[in-house]
Design a protein around this nucleic acid. Structure first.
Length: 745
DNA sequence: TTAGGGTTAG
């Protein structure tokens, strides 16, 4: 006797009633009835409350097992979402199914892949599932699983695996399938033809879109666009989701031409009703810097735009340096989300407006927004540029306490912060503990070692990076060449400068030339450096001429110094550093008259010398000193320490470099002035207030003077103390009487 | 009696 048409339960109570009726009538073990009950639960209840998953699985455990029931149980796991507890449950179910000898079908794998997309298990497990799918499935059952397989790899960010899954869909067999299907249709077997058609494994718009999205999300935008073109040539029409993926790739490539043609396509097909697509379109125009069109699309959406549209345009303005325009849009927004705040903060940080970024960060709490890993990356970047080590360490503690999810960006930002605060040891620990690294992580490590004066270690890391299969990019080579120049590794520098073009087709930019010219200049090869300046295909900028000028000072090359200074004064007439550098060169060479001309020129042009200062953090508090500073509450102790330093330095035969002082005063006064330099005050304070095992860490806004440099080397030996000084362009690590810069800075 | 791809922040 067929069962009565059972009602569809819409509440747990109704489900329980039906459960009782089925059990009482013996129909609980009748497959269609059992399926009906379980299906209703999965469709109506589980998606709205993951707690009902337990009830559904409880029923499932008591029903006679079948492929369909297992598929339904897996579907239940998927629909309950990732918040429903045990992320391993789908895999446990699958293992049980195999042990019970129940054959999986396309749906089984489909739901397993869907679960894997949301639960993000280990990549190895996904590969094993993929293999099991290939092993056990008939090709005719594949189409359900293949697109979800691609999607799983997309979610895991594994574009190459997504590609492999895509290639496994046998497109060449499509012809054979179509022949069989048309054959059946011609014989009048329309039902069979339709069934076969629904099962034929062919690449459709969804497979292609999956692959395009995979490439786009993995940052392989060229491949994404390549796929899009292949898709069109196979005669498959894109839909709005495809276009979103391709627009995102265009934005990465700054391919405005393709972006515009997509805009035309969107208009033709009337796709502008999708706001997701509108967001992608605004983002593409904004990232390409075409704000006219970006605004046109943005304005056309009108009031009631989603925050995503605002975010896309705000971020575009920030990335192109129009932070004020971005802020005015930010202020007009009614509902801002975490992305809005993070974009705006990042904009401020990259434009050097750290105070504004901090104010925004503090206002996030008022908007009930929790800090996430994007926020922490921004804050770490700010700490790195300020050299704010204690604050950076506090953020590290938040990561360790798992208050934010640690990922590859966060790890890289953390190691970069430690490097920029001169803590190579801590940066190295972060680097070594990172489970996953990418080219940015390696580059941050190499650059960090480079400007901390550890050129050889930097090059060893570069070697290791390539052994690990990472392809260096143009920024990696800037770091490598900077390592060579900071550590005076001339032969290696020449090698890498040629190699980047030959091996990777990376053409040198102004930064690469800058490093190379700096390296040649440091090595005393000023003629060769000038040859490179003359022959390079780019107009030399201020950095290039400043390198030449520095080299001229060290190698006493007055004529070339004058030539470099002339170029610099044309490029940056208001920059006091040039005047000071040239002035010092004249003083070193005892050309007093030229020196005083420079002074007059500065007065004439009203160029003010930037006031030098040094800061040191003790117990979380920043102490700032200027020359001859008497304002510190512990000035008496600091002065006593200064006197002790002076006394001990003299006892080992050190005489102050009073020749650096050009004001007409007696020797003793000159000595006093040198002794009152801000970095020496800060170091004295560090010595009296920090525990003896802690390094003394100073941040200086200008370059360290020669007398201070020699003095600090001696202090590091006499007090057996590590002293780290970050000046405006590099780090000096003083240990046991030597400095990591090898006296060239 | 089961299905499928999405945009914006580091």
């Amino acid at each position: 006797m067929p069962p009565a048409p059972w009602p569809t339960p819409r509440t747990v109570r109704q489900a329980a009633v039906l459960h009782a009726r089925l059990t009482a009538s013996g129909y609980f073990l009748h497959p269609p009835s059992a399926h009906h009950l379980l299906n209703s639960l999965v469709n109506c209840l589980v998606p709205f409350d993951p707690l009902h998953l337990r009830y559904a699985l409880h029923l499932f455990d008591r029903m006679p097992p079948s492929t369909f029931l297992y598929d339904t149980a897996l579907r239940a796991c998927f629909r309950a979402g990732s918040s429903s507890g045990d992320p391993d449950r789908p895999f446990v179910l699958f293992r049980r199914m195999r042990r019970a000898g129940i054959r999986p079908d396309g749906f089984t794998f489909h739901f397993l892949f869907k679960c894997s997309s949301s639960h993000r298990p280990h990549a190895l497990l996904c590969t094993m599932l993929h293999a099991a799918c290939l092993r056990t499935m008939l090709p005719s059952a594949a189409p359900f699983a293949s697109n979800s397989l691609i999607h799983m790899y997309v979610e895991l960010g594994l574009a190459a695996d997504a590609r492999r899954a895509f290639d496994e869909i046998p497109v060449k067999d499509a012809v054979a399938w179509i022949m069989v299907i048309t054959g059946l249709a011609k014989m009048g077997m329309l039902c069979d033809a339709r069934l076969l058609l629904s099962q034929a494994p062919m690449r459709d718009v969804i497979s292609w879109t999956g692959l395009i999205t995979a490439y786009s999300r993995a940052g392989q935008a060229k491949e994404a666009v390549g796929c899009f073109k292949s898709m069109l040539s196979e005669g498959i029409a894109p839909d709005k989701v495809t276009v979103i993926g391709v627009l995102s790739a265009c934005a990465q490539l700054k391919d405005l031409e393709l972006g515009r043609s997509l805009h035309l396509l969107i208009k033709e097909k009337g796709m502008l009703t999708s706001e997701n697509l509108v967001v992608a379109l605004i983002d593409m125009y904004a990232k390409c810097g075409d704000f006219g069109h970006a605004r046109q699309v943005f304005d056309a959406v009108g009031r009631g735009r989603r925050p995503q549209s605002w975010n896309a345009i705000i971020d575009g303005y920030c990335k192109h340096g129009h932070v004020d325009v971005a802020r005015s849009l930010f202020d007009q927004m009614e509902v801002r989300d975490i992305i809005t705040f993070n974009s705006m903060m990042t904009g401020y940080i990259h434009s050097g407006q750290l105070r504004e970024a901090l104010l925004l960060f503090m206002s996030m709490r008022r908007h009930d927004l929790c800090v996430d890993n994007f926020t922490v990356v921004s804050l770490l970047t700010a700490c790195a540029s300020l050299g704010a080590l204690p604050q950076g360490r506090a953020l590290h503690a938040c990561i360790e306490q798992r208050l934010v999810e640690a990922d590859i960006y966060l790890g890289t930002a953390l190691l970069d912060m430690y490097m920029k605060c001169g803590r190579v040891d801590e940066a190295t620990i972060v680097f070594q503990r990172m489970g996953k690294r990418d080219v940015h992580t390696w580059t941050a490590m190499i650059a960090g070692l480079a400007f901390n004066g550890m050129g050889k270690a930097a090059l060893e890391h570069f070697y290791q990076m390539r052994c690990d299969g990472f392809q260096p990019n143009s920024v990696s080579y800037i770091a490598v060449l900077a390592a060579c120049s900071h550590s005076c590794l001339l032969n290696q520098g020449r090698l890498y400068f040629d190699e980047m073009r030959i091996l990777y087709n990376i053409h040198p930019q102004i930064e690469h030339y800058g490093c190379m010219i700096d390296l040649l200049g440091r090595s005393g090869l000023l003629d060769e450096a000038m040859d490179l300046v003359k022959t390079m295909p780019i107009q030399p900028n201020a950095v290039i001429w400043a390198s030449i000028l520095s080299a001229c000072r060290v190698h006493k090359h007055i004529d070339l110094a004058q030539c470099a200074a002339e170029h610099l004064l044309k490029l940056e007439p208001d920059e006091d550093g040039v005047y000071v550098q040239l002035y010092n060169i004249y003083i070193d060479s005892r050309l007093w008259e030229n020196a005083s001309k420079i002074r007059m020129l500065m007065e004439e042009r009203q160029v003010k010398k930037t006031a030098g200062y040094s800061s040191i953090t003790v117990a979380g508090q920043v102490h700032k000193f200027v020359v001859s500073d008497k304002s510190h509450p512990r000035i008496l102790e600091i002065t006593a320490m200064m006197e002790e330093i002076s006394h001990r330095l003299k006892s080992v035969g050190y005489s102050p470099l009073t020749s650096q002082i050009t004001v007409d005063v007696d020797e003793e006064e000159k000595e006093q002035t040198l002794l009152a330099h801000s970095e020496k005050l800060a170091i004295s304070f560090g010595l009296i207030s920090l525990a003896p095992n802690l390094p003394v860490h100073i941040i200086k806004n200008l370059r360290v003077c020669e007398d201070c440099h020699s003095t600090i080397k001696l202090i590091s030996r006499l007090w057996n103390r590590e002293i780290i000084v970050r000046d405006r362009s590099r780090f000096h690590h003083f240990r046991e009487g030597t400095c990591s810069c090898n006296d060239f800075w």
